[in-house]
Design a protein around this nucleic acid. Structure first.
Lengths: 193, 193
DNA sequence: CGGGCCTTTGACTGGTTTCAACTTCTGTGG
DNA sequence: CCACAGAAGTTGAAACCAGTCAAAGGCCCG
């Protein structure tokens, strides 16, 4: 369904039927299986990805082969390697599917076309970036201010759907702790700590 | 000088004399002394701040009264509590001057006026947000992937001016380590480690 | 000269990581 | 339907890293 996207955008601008048609034509539907890559580090990120159904993640792999998750994306969210997508430089992130997923892809040309053809699209994209900026700012703030326990509780509270659907060691890789530490912490929380 | 701003923007759009005049009229010049607040947590952030000369920082204070620095801003940079400025909600950040500084303030009305009156302003703001988003993403990535030593070296390498001008304990508060740890680490680095 | 800010340093403490072992669960193929 | 491999979660012990706290000294500015 592109409907979710239309709904979100309707909060900012009203699209004509023609514009909706353009938007539809620019979004490339794609189904992926669990574990399937959408992007690998080193490749140039060609698409911004909207999740209609399922769940993706973006992550880096450090020199010790440890994965660090930058973002999860479930229904209604977008994901990509923004830097690579915007600049055309090789990506530093991997993106893959945590569940079988239904996606819509937008490539660079499509993005430019939307910006050119639809007045108000600049604003939609600007507002989207503002929201994402603030989300990142919150995360930095949490990493600086809060203990691991606080960060876990806050995350679980804010995104209960993600905690339920995503393996625990990935949550750990998102929060920046080892899987063992998160396991022990949850045990302690469960016993009323 | 508003010149710096004009130069940056010239990379994106060409302003007419009239538009330059509007831009000038919207930017409120302000001089501040070292230690002077521009914003305190709890107040609503009324301005985006452009630094013409000097150095500011934005930071939060946690429940133990410890300061955590989100951003430094030197000549040519902008700073504010983006969330508060955009939404009108009370700020979570403090902003103050690390040096005597010359600033230009833009309030919400001014921002809206620019967006309304100057075609292409949406794009300027969108590109600015994109850059800031990527800066934040890099920082999150560094916090997840890199050791404290790596983060310090990377920061010192990327922003040598800031390391030179800003007290060391503030660098520590930016990197997320105690002042003691940073001191010890620098000592070790100096002795060829 | 005095006070405040800043940096350094030592000893102690505690939280996290690491590593390995063991268990469970799931999906796949025989 | 069972066997097996891979993925996930838990747990223990040991080692390590960084935080805390307090004290001392340096430096700048009024």
């Amino acid at each position: 369904m592109v409907d979710q996207l239309f709904q979100d955008m309707a909060l900012t601008i009203t699209l004509t039927d023609q514009e909706k048609e353009l938007l539809r034509s620019v979004l490339i539907p794609k189904s992926v299986r669990k574990r399937q890559y959408l992007l690998q580090a080193g490749d140039v990120c060609q698409h911004a990805i909207f999740v209609a159904k399922g769940c993706l993640r973006s992550y880096t792999i450090d020199e010790n082969k440890v994965k660090h998750i930058f973002q999860f994306a479930i229904e209604g969210w977008a994901i990509s390697d923004m830097y690579s997508f915007l600049t055309g430089e090789p990506a530093k992130y991997y993106v893959d599917a945590i569940e079988d997923s239904e996606l819509y892809l937008m490539d660079r040309a499509g993005k430019e076309e939307l910006l050119d053809q639809i007045p108000g699209m600049e604003k939609v994209f600007r507002l989207t970036m503002e929201k994402s900026y603030i989300a990142n700012q919150r995360r930095i703030n949490a990493m600086l201010n809060n203990s691991i326990k606080e960060r876990y509780l806050s995350f679980a509270n804010t995104y209960p759907q993600i905690v339920q659907r995503v393996p625990q060691h990935m949550i750990a890789a998102y929060l920046g702790v080892s899987a063992g530490t998160l396991s022990r912490m949850r045990k302690q929380l469960a016993s009323g700590g």
